Computed example of a mutant assay.
Amino acid sequence: MNEAELLTDRERRAWYGLLTMQEDLHRHLSRELIRDCSITLSDFAVLSTLQMSGRAAMRVHEVRAAVRWEKTRLTHQISRMTSRGLLARIRCDEDRRGVWIALTDEGRAAIEAALPGHVARVRAMFLDVVPPKHLEILASISESVLEGLEEDADDTGS
């Protein structure tokens, strides 16, 4: 690689700072959810997606689009959560291969118990330390990057 292909110091700080921040936030939030509520951050992602939908159940492909995971990861996560009684699989009458995913009473109780503490931790670890004007900039940056990724996926047929 020639020097022009390498990241500048500013680019490296921004890129690796983003990656490190994301990993550290994930680790801290996950550890606290497990300690306080006996659910993982992955459990939380699925449970909160279902709860926020306001519907009794969602198709697997809808959950997958919301959490933005690979199909196999979500399939394994749903299996683990179903075996723990947090989710129920419901056959889809319209599509014999399709499945609906629903919160069980235990899953609903788990997400309702986890939400206040999780939101408080997100606020303390992230929202309270980032100035409001930077939050707007970060939101704009995130939207730009995600839009570019969607365009790239459209161009490549992914």
Rank of each mutant, 00 (worst) to 15 (best):
F44Y: 10
A45E: 10
S48Y: 07
S48V: 11
S48T: 12
S48L: 11
T49E: 02
T49Y: 04
T49D: 00
L50M: 04
Q51N: 09
Q51C: 08
Q51Y: 10
M52I: 03
S53Q: 07
A57D: 03
V60I: 13
V60Q: 15
R64F: 01
R64T: 13
A65T: 09
V67C: 09
R68S: 07
R68E: 12
W69M: 08
W69I: 04
E70K: 04
K71Q: 14
R73T: 14
T75S: 15
H76L: 14
H76S: 15
S79Y: 00
M81Q: 05
G85T: 09
G85N: 03
L86N: 01
A88M: 12
I90C: 06
I90T: 15
R91C: 05
C92Q: 12
D93M: 11
E94H: 00
D95N: 12
R96K: 12
R96N: 07
R97C: 06
W100S: 01
I101V: 14
A102S: 12
T104Y: 02
D105N: 09
E106S: 07
A109L: 04
A110G: 10
A113Y: 06
A113W: 00
V119H: 13
R121K: 13
V122N: 11
R123M: 13
F126E: 06
F126G: 15
L127A: 05
L127C: 04
V129G: 15
V130A: 09
E136C: 07
I137H: 01
S140F: 03
I141C: 11
S142E: 06
E143P: 03
E143D: 10
L146K: 10
E150S: 09
E150I: 15
D152C: 05
A153P: 10
